[in-house]
Design a protein around this nucleic acid. Structure first.
Lengths: 334, 334
DNA sequence: GCAGTTCATGGAACCGTTTCCATAGAGTTT
DNA sequence: AAACTCTATGGAAACGGTTCCATGAACTGC
């Protein structure tokens, strides 16, 4: 048997389709006994409104997209969880668009702008530029989270990476270290992340302000992945005059540093101090001292911005540009 | 200006709407010069087909849903990544439905069955029962991944938890341990996971087969979360006659055991051996010896099953029931 | 040169909602 | 009791695609 439509319900309840629609959408223009009759018919037939038809007619999809780079990175997952957490209580579905390259990002955005598949879009940790892509549909609500190129066209949540680098470096200095190394991820050509660069800038600035030299032999930029990080850290640590502390621009890289240290028989924190960045869950397991950037909360905040926009119909003017707070989480690697 | 429709394109190209539709869908029933003219018109107008209309008319949504418990658990994320990995090359979008309780699961499933929001559904790590929920729409393709209640109605990928518990336990015995403890997560009332129970069963069986007693003072079931795990492990380890090895039924619990051991000044693996289960990414960082269950691959496999089903239009008969392989990953905690 | 076949095409009907307009009937005012 | 207002309701039109059927042109074979 065909799945029942609104017309079947109308016939069964002895009313018109308009009335059924009104009941479905909670209009107060329906007499109580009529509403009851309609609800009974809906129940009797097991009717459930077809979502595509509703979308086509109403012009809303009740879907919000998340555009994000390959989302296994713990920092993306935690932000995503924050978004999901807020959206969960609403009518909106969350659709994932995983991106692997700038070309794919452009294509995706272009398509999403036009196809009316989503009512809104989160752009997570992807450097987007103020180009023509967006003009295709200027009305589409977009919230940008942790964008490295500061896009002023949409509301956004930013991480002050330079400041974070500064905090981590100051923390190491405060603990008596003067020989500091740095490990960052190499600029991914396909995306052009600059967060590690910015954190390095904070590192540099702080050292210079303290009158200390930046020893480039102690600074490495490696690809993502524990193995790369371990090798890079090893290269730093096998030098005769090795640093006594390393600032890893990402927690996952910090794990590689810890690995390398243990391979070389260096005790942490006695022989080598390590500080990371992000405070992903695994950082807690590993007792890693790190810079926390409140990933989950940044997801929640961005979802609230989005809902606000969708509800009111116009760009939220408050909190247009939010810089997320950072804080040092003291554990046992410094 | 209104976004252009297929009729605008037709007019602009001087053809009928049917022809434009044929071009869009790659029909070979169109002359080459006509196709070219249509494509030019599409380009000129910046046309992109409206997804809702396409869904309504074609009866397909090109969306696949993932129903999963609160998805920050690393094991879900990695499976999800596997699914996404395969779907990424197709036309299908992936929508996330996060579930917090059995009641919500029922409601979600009921709604998804009827509303035609998705073409298919993955059910991840949720105990579903053979009840009426599914009869609402028996035609909806569903792939079940790691279901604890064995559902034979749909193709599924299973983890042999009993076997995994056995493997871990045997591995500890092989390494000379005879005093074995166990840490599992407590049955979550809202879902009724039984994976920890099954792993415990494997643990018990193996000990009994080896003629060793199961000391229930060394076995604990705690809530999820590092703190709970640490406290539970501590309770086990402060006993005068403590075990020399602990099998943690989930990697994240194993981290809690490692924490407790370090708090108590116990060296791992000399004073205490620890083996986990899952092999999540953080297990690599922490050098945890564990039972690997190929999470990413199980996601990929299930996505392939799904695509097969959607492509052919009928339930895949091969690989109806796949038991994923397990293996011990030897690191440095045993 | 004609019947039969194939191919490319136009366009109406349809998918299942929402929305808007028309209307009937009840209630109110004069 | 006529004129007006208000409320609840029915149903047509619209949303923007796909699909199917009818049609005319071009080609085939005799």
């Amino acid at each position: 048997m065909r799945t029942p439509t609104i017309r079947d319900v109308a016939k069964h309840a002895g009313v018109g389709v308009g009335t059924v629609s009104r009941v479905l959408n909670g209009s107060d223009q329906v007499r109580e006994d009529t509403r009851k009759r309609v609800l009974e018919a809906i129940n009797a037939l097991g009717f459930s409104p077809n979502s595509a038809a509703r979308q086509l007619s109403g012009g809303k999809t009740f879907t919000i997209g998340v555009v994000s780079p390959f989302f296994t990175f713990p920092s993306f997952v935690e932000r995503l969880a924050g978004i999901q957490d807020v959206l969960d209580g609403t009518d909106y579905d969350l659709t994932l668009y995983s991106i692997r390259s700038t070309a794919q990002l452009r294509r995706r955005l272009g398509a999403l702008m036009l196809q009316n598949r989503v009512d809104g879009l989160f752009i997570l940790a992807l450097p987007i530029s103020e180009d023509e892509t967006f003009s295709a549909n200027p009305a589409l609500p977009i919230v940008v989270v942790d964008d490295t190129v500061h896009v002023r066209r949409y509301p956004h949540l930013l991480i002050d990476n330079v400041r974070g680098g500064q905090m981590a470096t100051e923390y190491l200095l405060q603990h008596g270290h003067t020989r500091l190394g740095f490990l960052g991820d190499r600029v991914d050509e396909s995306f052009g992340f600059t967060s590690a660069q910015d954190r390095f800038k904070g590192f540099q600035n702080t050292l210079e302000a303290a009158g200390l030299p930046v020893n480039m032999n102690w600074c490495q930029f490696c690809l993502h992945g524990e193995d790369y990080a371990r090798d890079a850290a090893r290269d730093i640590l096998i030098q005769p005059d090795r640093p006594t502390a390393i600032f890893a621009a990402i927690d996952t890289l910090a794990f590689g540093v810890l690995d390398a240290a243990s391979d070389l028989g260096l005790r942490v924190p006695e022989d080598l101090a390590v500080i990371g960045f992000d405070d992903i869950q695994a950082a807690g397991f590993a007792k890693l001292t790190t810079v926390r950037q409140h990933l989950f909360q940044s997801g929640q905040r961005s979802a609230e911005l989005m809902l606000d926009w969708l509800r009111t119909g116009h760009v939220p003017s408050e909190n247009w540009s939010t810089v997320m707070p950072l804080e040092i989480v003291e554990r046992s690697t410094v």
